[in-house]
């Protein structure tokens, strides 16, 4: 066995896994705080990426475009709270889930109506194919950058959740609505923060994925990749989303390279789901998820 090659596959897998984690993170934030599986997360990724790339095309400098896109995502969060969440307050979670399906199509449609449905090249100034070598292993530079960006985002989010007043309020709401209200935390404001944070994560995911694949409709389907990640890591855990992404990324690459040739390849497409099924059978709540206890 060529250990350098093995190392290269593992590192490549871990790095691409980080990009899955990034998408999964957006789901976890909203699920944790409200118990809602936000079907529209993929559409938010697309919308953020499109907004960003179109602003760049208008010759707006990159940082300004990032800032403006973030403002748009916050406005979107406020609109979602007003128009979708508020009228549905106290409804069953399944109804909220259905609402996010509608929201998904609405945002997808809006993204393409306001901007357009062409493929846009997003160039962050990093060569996608450049790389460097560690020993005999070739490491892709872009993947390293993507992992760094994801790492910084996760670091900022965890500082925010752990040490700020609002961060604590978000965690409080995620744990117990009644108790959060009793200490004076307003739920509506918190929803806006949660969806804005999910918007920020969508923006980062959109920029990273968009510069890899080009900004196009297909980006919204990367959300599908997040589902096995969530099942493996657990729907309620931020570390779970990260680890789940790494497991899926690394697992699918290893399977593709070492098992693929024996079964005719294309394992990458279904391997994550198979992995997720195995986890479902052994540990239904995912590796880091909380055991679901029915409250009566």
């Amino acid at each position: 066995m060529d250990w350098w090659f093995f190392f290269e596959v593992v590192v490549g897998g871990l790095l691409s896994g980080v990009m899955y984690s990034l998408v999964a993170l957006g789901f976890v934030l909203i699920f944790k705080a409200s118990g809602v599986f936000n079907f529209a997360q993929g559409a938010m990724v697309l919308f953020a990426a499109l907004t960003f790339v179109r602003l760049l095309e208008m010759n707006i400098p990159m940082l300004a475009a990032l800032g403006l896109t973030m403002i748009v995502m916050v406005i979107l969060a406020i609109a979602i709270e007003r128009i979708v969440l508020r009228p549905l307050v106290n409804q069953d979670l399944i109804i909220l889930f259905m609402a996010t399906i509608g929201l998904n199509y609405f945002i997808e449609g809006m993204a393409q109506l306001v901007w357009d449905s062409d493929v846009h090249v997003l160039n962050l100034g990093i060569d996608e194919y450049a790389g460097f070598e560690i020993g005999n292993a070739f490491i892709n530079k872009f993947d390293v950058w993507a992992a760094l960006i994801a790492g910084v985002l996760v670091l900022i989010l965890s500082l925010f959740f752990r040490y700020t007043v609002i961060g604590r309020a978000l965690r409080a709401v995620a744990d117990d609505h009644q108790a959060a209200l009793s200490v004076g935390i307003p739920l509506r404001t918190i929803w806006i923060y949660v969806w804005s944070t999910a918007g920020l994560v969508a923006l980062v995911a959109g920029v990273v994925w968009g510069s890899k694949l080009g900004v196009q409709f297909a980006i919204s389907t990367v959300a599908l990749k997040a589902i096995p990640v969530l099942i493996i890591g657990g729907f309620t855990s931020v570390p779970g989303a990260i680890l789940g992404g790494l497991i899926v990324g690394c697992g699918e690459k290893l399977a593709e390279v070492y098992v693929g040739p024996f079964v005719g390849g294309a394992i990458e497409n279904w391997f994550p789901y198979m992995l997720a099924m195995v986890v479902l059978m052994i540990r239904p709540q995912g590796i880091f998820g909380e055991k679901i206890i029915e409250r009566v």
């Binding site: 965690r171 409080a172 995620a174 117990d176 959060a180 009793s182 307003p186």
Partner: peptide, 22 residues
């Protein structure tokens, strides 16, 4: 509901309602 605390009224619950992740 979230303004009750601001009036200076605090409470505990019959079934404990803590922030379990903290």
């Amino acid at each position: 509901p979230h303004n009750i605390a601001r009036m200076g009224i605090a409470r505990t619950f019959q079934n404990i309602a803590l922030f379990r992740g903290m």
